[in-house]
Simulated assay, not measured.
Amino acid sequence: MVDARIKQIHESGTADEGAAESRELTRLFAASAGADGLQDLLDGTCTLIYMFMQWLHRTHAQGDKDVIEYVVPHLVATLRMMPRSVPPQTIPTMAALVIAAGTGLSPNGWRSQYGDWTPEEMQALEVTAFLIAEHINRIADDHGYAVRLVADALDQAETDTD
């Protein structure tokens, strides 16, 4: 979903074009997945955020920079500019989730102590994963870099289990 959204924005040049269709496809997927599938989707999105933040942590550390200092303020500022997609009350949760991931804590474990996700938080979580992936792509100067990071990690995990 993150990859499709990144491609859609780069092809159309705007986040609004195709947004309704994307939301409808996400809604249909969630409805067809059932409770277990939806939980898997949430866990997977948190895992992506963790992977992305660990990559960003290593990248920023090479330049003696703090990942939290360089990623979180930009993320929060961008989320604040998206009040139709990201309700303001969800922004502190997304910031805390990203901070947890950036400091090596599991976002899934961090979030579990606060109860179930709300519908507003799920949309904010999707936007957060997208924004972090896009941040990685900008650093790498490559629109598909974040997705390749995930694909490479999956390939490596498959190789390790064989």
Rank of each mutant, 00 (worst) to 15 (best):
residue 26 T to E: 15
residue 17 E to G: 12
residue 13 G to E: 13
residue 104 G to R: 10
residue 147 V to M: 09
residue 12 S to T: 15
residue 47 T to F: 12
residue 17 E to N: 14
residue 82 M to C: 01
residue 95 A to D: 05
residue 153 A to L: 05
residue 42 L to R: 10
residue 21 E to C: 09
residue 154 L to S: 07
residue 79 L to R: 03
residue 13 G to N: 13
residue 126 E to Q: 08
residue 49 I to S: 04
residue 37 G to M: 00
residue 115 G to P: 06
residue 14 T to F: 14
residue 153 A to C: 04
residue 123 Q to W: 05
residue 122 M to I: 10
residue 118 T to W: 03
residue 146 A to I: 02
residue 26 T to Y: 15
residue 10 H to I: 09
residue 23 R to T: 15
residue 48 L to I: 05
residue 6 I to F: 08
residue 158 E to T: 10
residue 42 L to H: 06
residue 29 F to Q: 11
residue 141 D to M: 05
residue 110 W to N: 04
residue 41 L to K: 04
residue 85 S to G: 11
residue 70 Y to V: 14
residue 115 G to W: 03
residue 151 A to M: 07
residue 110 W to R: 07
residue 18 G to S: 12
residue 34 G to E: 02
residue 113 Q to R: 14
residue 4 A to N: 10
residue 152 D to W: 03
residue 69 E to R: 15
residue 62 Q to I: 12
residue 36 D to Y: 02
residue 160 D to G: 01
residue 141 D to G: 03
residue 56 L to G: 04
residue 11 E to Q: 13
residue 11 E to R: 14
residue 24 E to G: 10
residue 52 F to R: 07
residue 15 A to H: 15
residue 134 E to F: 03
residue 116 D to G: 08
residue 22 S to L: 14
residue 113 Q to Y: 13
residue 107 P to S: 07
residue 106 S to F: 06
residue 146 A to Q: 00
residue 77 A to W: 06
residue 126 E to I: 04
residue 9 I to E: 13
residue 149 L to C: 02
residue 36 D to R: 07
residue 150 V to E: 07
residue 43 D to M: 05
residue 76 V to F: 04
residue 107 P to M: 08
residue 24 E to Q: 15
residue 112 S to E: 13
residue 82 M to Q: 12
residue 69 E to H: 14
residue 157 A to F: 04
residue 121 E to M: 04
residue 156 Q to T: 12
residue 97 L to H: 04
residue 137 N to G: 01
residue 27 R to V: 10
residue 2 V to C: 08
residue 98 V to P: 02
residue 143 H to Q: 10
residue 21 E to L: 15
residue 110 W to P: 06
residue 131 L to M: 01
residue 48 L to Y: 07
residue 12 S to Y: 12
residue 134 E to H: 09
residue 108 N to V: 15
residue 35 A to I: 08
residue 47 T to A: 15
residue 26 T to Q: 15
residue 98 V to I: 05
residue 5 R to I: 09
residue 149 L to R: 02
residue 131 L to G: 00
residue 115 G to V: 03
residue 64 D to Q: 15
residue 115 G to S: 05
residue 29 F to L: 14
residue 72 V to A: 07
residue 111 R to D: 07
residue 16 D to K: 15
residue 102 G to C: 06
residue 66 D to P: 06
residue 84 R to L: 13
residue 89 Q to N: 10
residue 53 M to T: 08
residue 56 L to M: 11
residue 39 Q to F: 00
residue 34 G to Y: 03
residue 128 T to M: 00
residue 52 F to Y: 14
residue 143 H to S: 08
residue 80 R to H: 10
residue 93 T to Y: 04
residue 75 L to E: 06
residue 12 S to W: 08
residue 55 W to N: 10
residue 1 M to N: 08
